[in-house]
Write a protein that binds this DNA or RNA. Structure first.
Lengths: 152, 152
DNA sequence: AGGCTGACTTTGGGTTTACAAAGCCATCGT
DNA sequence: ACGATGGCTTTGTAAACCCAAAGTCAGCCT
C-alpha cells in the first residue's frame, strides 16, 4: 500500500517515473552494454559482472518495459539463439548514459580517463541542453510548462 | 567483501560510478527539489514525500559527496537555520535530470504533460549530444578514447 | 550416445533502501 | 515560563537489490 501510494504521488513527475524505471545499477550496466553492441546473454553477464539471475531478471524487465527487444536468430549451422537489441526508447536513453559518464569523468576523476570523441572529426563530445532556436539556456532560463495532452 | 570487489570492478566505468552515486529515487528527488530552489529540511520532506529519516540520511550523503552544501543562516529576528544549496557538481547534474524527465515525457506519457521551454525565447528545450565542431553524431560515430591523466 | 555449451532458473543469504511512527532538543514567540 | 516549531534521530519492519553456487534443459558436435 505504501508503495502504491508512493507510486501514485510520484506519477506526475516524469523525472521520478524515469528514475524508477532505470535508476538501478544493473539496468544501467545492461543498457550500457547494449549500446556497445552486446546482444547475447552470456556476454551481458561477463561484461557487466552481474550475476546470471540478476541479468536474467533485468533483461526480462527491460524487454517488458520496451527498452530492449528479444528475438531469436540463428547463424548457419548453429542452434537458435536470442539477441537483445535496444528499441528506440532504449536508444534515446544512450545520450543520458553518456552524460552521466561525462559528469563522472569531470567530478569523480580517476587516474585514466575516458573521453568521448566524434569518430569522424576527432572533436570531443559533450552533452548539452539546448532550445530549438539554438540557444544554450542557463538553468535560470529553463521554464517548466504544464499542459493538457490532447485526447487522441 | 562482495561489495568491495564489486566497487573496484566497476571503478573504471564513469557511468557506473555516477549511477552508484545518484541512481536512487530519493537522491534524484532531493536534487530535483534543490534545483527548484528548495533549501530547507522540512520543505524537502514535504515536497519529495520522502520520510524524514531518508531525507536526513540522503541530504547528509549528498553533502558528504559534495553535491550540496549545508550552511547555517539566520533571517533577522529568526533562529538559526540550515540551508542546503547545490554545489557546482550538483548543478552540473541538473541537465541530466532534465534529460531524464524529457525522456519520461516522451516514452512514458501521462495525461497532462510537462514541457521544458527556454523562458527567453519560448522554444522547447531538449538535450543533445554534440561534438565541439558542432556536429550531432549518431551513436555509431561516438568513439570512446582511453588516456592517462597527466599527473598534476 | 554422450558431452559440451548457451541460456537460463533456483535456492539461500546479505545489504541497502524505504516506510511509519514516535521521540528529542534547542530556540523563538508570547 | 511554556508551548510550538524546525530539524532532526531512533526503532522496527518490509521490500528491493545483489551475490554465490548449483541445477536444468535443449540442441549441436563428435
Amino acid at each position: 500500500m505504501a508503495r502504491a501510494e508512493r507510486t501514485e504521488a510520484g506519477d506526475a513527475c516524469p523525472i521520478e517515473r524515469s528514475i524508477s524505471l532505470i535508476g538501478r545499477r544493473s539496468t544501467v550496466l545492461l543498457l550500457r552494454e547494449a549500446s556497445y553492441g552486446t546482444s547475447r546473454f552470456d556476454d551481458f553477464v561477463r561484461r557487466t559482472g552481474l550475476t546470471e539471475s540478476v541479468t536474467a531478471d533485468q533483461l526480462r524487465r527491460l524487454v517488458a518495459e520496451g527498452l530492449l527487444t528479444k528475438h531469436p536468430y540463428r547463424e548457419p549451422a548453429q542452434r537458435q539463439r536470442f539477441e537483445y537489441v535496444l528499441t528506440e526508447a532504449g536508444h534515446d536513453l544512450v545520450p543520458i548514459l553518456l552524460a552521466l559518464g561525462s559528469w563522472g569523468e569531470k567530478h569523480r576523476p580517476r587516474s585514466h580517463r575516458i573521453r568521448l570523441v566524434h569518430a569522424d572529426c576527432g572533436a570531443p563530445i559533450h552533452v548539452e541542453v539546448r532550445c530549438e532556436a539554438g540557444h544554450a539556456p542557463p538553468e535560470s532560463e529553463v521554464a517548466v510548462v504544464l499542459e493538457d495532452r490532447p485526447a487522441t
